[in-house]
Nucleic acid binder design. Sequence first.
RNA 1: GGGCGUGUAGCUCAGUUGGUCAGAGCAUGCGCUUGAUAAGCGCAGGGUCACUGGUUCAAGUCCAGUCACGCCCA
Length: 1003
Amino acid sequence: MATDYKQTLNLPRTDFPMKADLVAREPQRLARWQAGRLYERIQAARAGAPKFVLHDGPPFANGDVHIGTALNKILKDFILKFKALRGFDAPFVPGWDCHGLPIEFKVTQDMQKNGGPARGAADAATVRRACEAYARKYIEVQRAQFQRLGVLGDWARPYLTLDRQYEADELRLFADLVERGFVYRGKKPVYWSIPCRTALAEAEVEYRDHVSPSIYVKFPLVGHPGTSVVIWTTTPWTLPANLAVAYNSTFDYAVVLVGREQFIVSALLLPTVAQKCAWGDYQIVRHLRGEELSQLEYTHPFCARTGRLFAGDAFVDNVTGTGFVHIAPGHGLEDYQLGLEHGLPIYSPVNDDGAFTHTNDLPLEQQMPATLLGKSILETNGESEANAAVLAELRARGALLHHEPYTHSYPHCWRSKTPVIFRAMDQWFIEIDHEVVNSPASAAGATEKDKSGLGQTAQSPSAPFPLFPSASASDGHTTFRQRALAEIDRVEWIPDWGINRIKSAVQTRPDWCISRQRAWGVPIPAFFDAHGEPILDARIVRRAADLIEQHGSNVWFEKSAAELWALLRPADWQGPEAVSKSTDTLDVWIDSGSSSRAVLMRRAELQHARQSQPGQGHGQPGEPSPVASPPWQADMYLEGSDQHRGWFQSSLLLSLAANGAAPFRTVLTHGFMVDADREKISKSQQAQGGYEKPQTADAYVNRWGADIVRLWVSSQDFRNDIVVSEERINKVAETYRVIRNALRYQLSNLYDFDPGRDAVPDEQLTGLDRWILAEFSKLEADVLAAYERYEFHVVYQKLAQFVAVELSAIYHDVIKDRLYTDAPDSPRRRSTQTTLHRLVTGLCQMLAPILAFTADEAWEFVPGRPTDSVHEAHWQPRPFALREDEALCWQHLFELRERALPELEKARQAKLIGKALEARLTLRGGDAATRTAQAHGEALRELLNVSQLTVQLDGEGSPQFLVAHADGQKCARCWHWETDVGAHAGHPTLCGRCVAAVERCAG
RNA sequence: GGGCGUGUAGCUCAGUUGGUCAGAGCAUGCGCUUGAUAAGCGCAGGGUCACUGGUUCAAGUCCAGUCACGCCCA
């Protein structure tokens, strides 16, 4: 009976499921990884191996993991898994950024909603405790979500910027900056809520319509009697702070005669201005180009001082106003920047209550008239005392040309709902152009550190590594900005245009305002003396760091100024005594930017061996060897390209200033998530209900599984934008199935293969097996190179195409016959099994960084696998090259295959044959390929999957194939058409080859 | 408005220094197979390489400009 013969075949069998069911099965594997401490096992196995340190940029501990954040972590995981697979010791210490406004804002909002203290009256310590609880809650949430993505790391010991030790190290780094003279006190305008008596952040202001007084004011020019420029403003109360007027150098200005006075305004805006100011009868005297205004000076309309005109092309527009913008550097951001450029005082004659006051920025006689003092800016019933008083002054002096109500969008305090003002406040700054010297900084801090005896101090940054090693100036005088730019050149930036981004960020950045009037942050341990003068001293900061390391930073907010001063005042203190403490916190970019000190230097597992070579990847041959890299310097930072101006910059500046070197050797950046229309996706759109697409990582993982998400991440060139769309992910899922099926096919044909017993040596492998191993070896080299360049999309493409073409369409298709029909232990079958075993082993390893779950799942089915998990394996590609003649032979055979397949297809269309095994092929030709075919007829027959092939060498000419139906009868076992079917009496339906196979089995 | 990027078949990507470079895989359509079967194989149709001008004997490949999108500034 024919069906019996099926039992004599070696049909594939495996428990490796065809259906992945990732959503259900991945969590089980994850649980096993965790129970078996996989990360720790990998680390232990790599102890002593060369280090590869990728330092995690801390995501904000707020909300679910966004798909964009998932992309970032997955990319990091690709690299770390790859490095570990290649034998590196590649630890991963994940981190979280915990402080900052979004959390404080949310927490205070919730407190208010829940009937808590209104208007932010809650004390800082209470708010801070709530903030910490909030951050810790989301750290837990995000930790689970990151782990679910298959990201391995030291999740039990992440770094948190709210950890006491972190905060302490951050302050120690800050103390170094203070000691080296980087930190100074200056002024900068901030949003200020008068009723709440507090500074507001951008996120805390809401824009609402508001009616302001719109006024046009004369500013008489010095040396041009009877001539004034005209400015327009909607905040009359800022006029006492006016120190300059801005024009646009690209505009055309008109000088117009009105009665006996001359006014200068933008020519384009003249008609509007003339109408507003009721210049019924005016004439244009002449035109001025913008640059002709640059030397002009004016007299303040009601203060005894003069000001100058400056170009402000960036913000002086030709749409509203007069073409002249009144500048009060203490009351506006653009004003502030222009003021800085021209060395104007950041003058802000408004006190905490929002009332006019004199300050010591200007001589008293130059400040506002006494009639204005004490007037409040805050509106009551739509009227502002300050505005009214200013208008009165202007009217009294005939300076007011026009006044009308004006409705526009204006920032309001989110809590009190009142209009906010922009007001300059004292702030701490880091001076970017600080002059630095080439010699190492004094060790003054170290002695104090030793004395304190509190806590442990992070590794000293100085010891064997000179500060600012990259300095080239011999005169010993360079600015810190120049040092930073030089250091940037020593870092490898991928993609290479990244260096432009970071350089322009460093080149153009202003001094770094590092103080915030917020509660949820690391306190700036400064005091004030009886005169309100600040006390900021490196020794005090270090003692505060020790205190905070012991008690947490809430100690700063809970203890009184006197208590703190008593604890922190150095014994030999000569300076003024403190009477109050600072309540400012550090900019959160100082938090995350300090991780070089608080994490890279702190954690033993992140240290490179001392004899560490200069960073791999940079340093050209022939170039003088640069200073050895410090052992704590990370091999890589990997974040979105927005971080050039963010974390990359803050980390670089802080580490260079305090540790003497950049914290990274290589910086890799990725693009951003965009949707199918290549428009950005954002959480806010989602929140507004306009977006139904889920944008949390979990939403994708729960629908497709982590491996599909990971494969999708790998499939696109992350240096550009990454398209997230259902269509795209479904395509990737399709590729996943193809890969999974190929693995399954390979595993299913190894059920009776024991590599120790059955493996066939290379030189005894069949030609086809040697061919695929050579192809695989090329793939391996390509994939390895792509991984090393971090081009995962190339890995994806190469792997997917290899699986689809070389494996599925060719090799796997062809070897079915030998695997199924040869005797189980025939040399030919064992040769092919040896090859499959090698392929599946290599594929699992190659796939492991990307398909973290699936590669590990398949690995468990590989006979004689060398390690328990694929992630513990050491991937060492085995080159396999064909001899030259062998390679040429296969090249010929595949050329012929290309010609034969269309002929077979034609025959199929003509209903001459169905499957290829029903065909008899005749090849006729005279070229080299045909000669090869004659010599290797059986190999070609097998490659074409036909039952019969005849080769006829015939003069010249390119090869031609003729298709006919195969001769003989179909063998019931192997389905070949053979002329010897029926020749054996015992097996009348079998061909000779099958008779042999069957009898061998039976015997 | 400025800086930095990106723009090749429906999708994701290859296309070194300008001259068979218009390719691959997937998807689609049409067949075949039913011993990888919620699988497998074959064949076919798809692109004026964003657009417009230049340089050149010759340009996805160099230059300029335009448009669209992204990031960062303003």
